[in-house]
Structure formats: structure tokens, C-alpha cells
């Protein structure tokens, strides 16, 4: 990607992000009540999107030579350590370090 293409990509992301933040205030100016389906989506979509993002992160791993095995090991490790210590930053840090060790040593 060239520098210009990077900037256009970043602008597209900014535009998409800002649209999600400003849109409600344009559509529902003071006093207008949003329809039920929208408020329903509001309660469920945040949960579904995180599932989508987890899959997005490992999408390329499935077709590599190890078929996502190092990813699977690290994710299982994160689940265990997070259930045990319940410390977000620790789980993220430890999981990432384990993955880095795995791909730099056993799964080269």
C-alpha cells in the first residue's frame, strides 16, 4: 500500500467510525423515540461483534502450515489464566508473550 492509499484507508475508517457516533443525533433530534428493533439491536449487537472480531483475528491462521494450532494453544491459555486471575491486562500480556514464544520457537 502506498502512503496515499494508507491515508485514504485511515480516512475511510474515520468516516465509518464517526458515522456510527453522530448518526443517532441526526436521526433522532431532541424528543424523537427510536424504533424498538433498533434498541433491541443495541442490546445484542455489542456481544455478537466481539465474536466476529475473534474470528476475524484468527481468519488467516486456519490455512497456514500449523492450521491455527499456536493460536488455539494461546487462546486456551488466555481463557484459563483469565478465569483464574480475572485481570484483563495480565491475560492479554501473558497470552501475547506465550504466542510470541510459540511462533518463534516450536512453530517456526
Amino acid at each position: 500500500m502506498t502512503g496515499m492509499q494508507s491515508i485514504i484507508t485511515i480516512f475511510a475508517v474515520i468516516l465509518g467510525t464517526m458515522l456510527t457516533r453522530f448518526l443517532p443525533f441526526f436521526i433522532f433530534p431532541e424528543g424523537k423515540v427510536p424504533p424498538k428493533f433498533i434498541t433491541y439491536l443495541g442490546t445484542v449487537l455489542p456481544y455478537a461483534v466481539i465474536g466476529l472480531l475473534v474470528v476475524y483475528c484468527v481468519k488467516d491462521a486456519l490455512w497456514t502450515s500449523f492450521h491455527g494450532l499456536p493460536e488455539l494453544i494461546a487462546i486456551l491459555f488466555i481463557i484459563v489464566i483469565h478465569k483464574w486471575k480475572k485481570c484483563t491486562l495480565l491475560s492479554i500480556g501473558a497470552g501475547t508473550i506465550l504466542y510470541m514464544v510459540l511462533v518463534q520457537t516450536c512453530f517456526r
Partner: peptide, 29 residues
Amino acid sequence: LLSAFNPLYAFFLALMVNARHLFYGISML
């Protein structure tokens, strides 16, 4: 930024990933 250039895809991805803001917005009206 590390994959092929596709701003439209980036835009839609941003919309979907950030869709929760729509609902934050609705609660903050």
C-alpha cells in the same frame, strides 16, 4: 493497512465494528 487497498471494505468494517456507538448515542440523546 498491511493488506490490499480497499477503502470501501475498511469503511464497512468500521461501521460494523463500531455499530455499538449507534446505541451508545441513542442512550445519550
